[in-house]
């Protein structure tokens, strides 16, 4: 077993979280609060570094005055805490919505047109037929604009089966990912804390 205090603290943190498996308890809740606290503190450090490097330092040291605009918009976000001027915070939100919305429209190209193009494959093999029919049937399942005919319902049912296989693959991968996390904690507890695993 290690005598490194850091490893001990990390082990205690891990076990405190795992204690939830027995039952929900006050030690778990306390460590959960510590986690949120560190996350928020860490987030503040990161955001401040970015804003400071990018806007505040150039404004104060080099006199790049255009940075005043986003700084004011940023400060306006705090208006929400004061009822009489709360509406001012919407200006900043609108600004972010405008840019974010415009940039996200590109999704039409990357996730619609390009995906449709990639589905235009010759139907000369079983795999390609699965790909094309599967995609079309899946899309039919999500088609709600008109009252579906019997034929459309049939295709949609096939689409539902395809989606179920996708979700199954998703489930398998979800399990796999969580197992990886468990392994890493076990490697730590029994490798670095208690020397049971040879590292």
């Amino acid at each position: 077993m290690t005598s490194d205090i850091g490893i001990w603290v990390a082990a205690i943190c891990t076990l405190a979280m795992f204690s939830f498996l027995w039952k929900e308890n006050s030690i778990f809740r306390s460590f959960q609060h510590i986690y949120v606290g560190i996350a928020a503190g860490y987030g503040m450090v990161r955001q401040w570094q970015a804003i400071n490097n990018m806007a505040i330092t150039p404004l104060l040291t080099k006199g790049v005055t255009t940075w005043i605009v986003p700084i004011i918009l940023g400060v306006l976000l705090f208006a929400r805490f004061f009822k009489s001027i709360a509406y001012l915070s919407r200006w900043s939100v609108a600004f972010l919505i405008g840019i974010g919305g415009a940039l996200s429209i590109k999704i039409l190209e990357t996730e619609f047109i390009r995906q449709a193009q990639a589905t235009f494959v010759p139907m000369n093999s079983f795999n390609n037929i699965v790909l094309v029919l599967g995609t079309v049937a899946g899309l039919c399942y999500f088609y709600f604009t008109i009252k579906p005919s019997t034929a459309l319902l049939g295709v949609a049912k096939l689409g539902r089966y395809v989606l179920m296989i996708s979700f199954g693959a998703g489930f398998g991968n979800a399990v796999m990912g969580r197992v990886s996390l468990l392994i890493s904690r076990m490697q730590f507890l029994f490798g670095q804390w208690i020397y049971l695993i040879k590292m």
């Binding site: 850091g6 490893i7 603290v9 990390a10 082990a11 943190c13 891990t14 405190a16 979280m17 795992f18 939830f20 498996l21 460590f31 959960q32 510590i34 986690y35 560190i38 996350a39 860490y42 979800a174 399990v175 969580r178 197992v179 996390l181 468990l182 890493s184 904690r185 730590f188």
Partner: peptide, 21 residues
């Protein structure tokens, strides 16, 4: 604070999921 507390707490919290799944 980051490596000995934040990292193990976060990972352990998400690792719990495997038991529930």
């Amino acid at each position: 604070l980051f490596t000995k507390m934040y990292q193990p707490l976060g990972t352990a919290m998400f690792a719990l999921m495997v038991f529930f799944i």
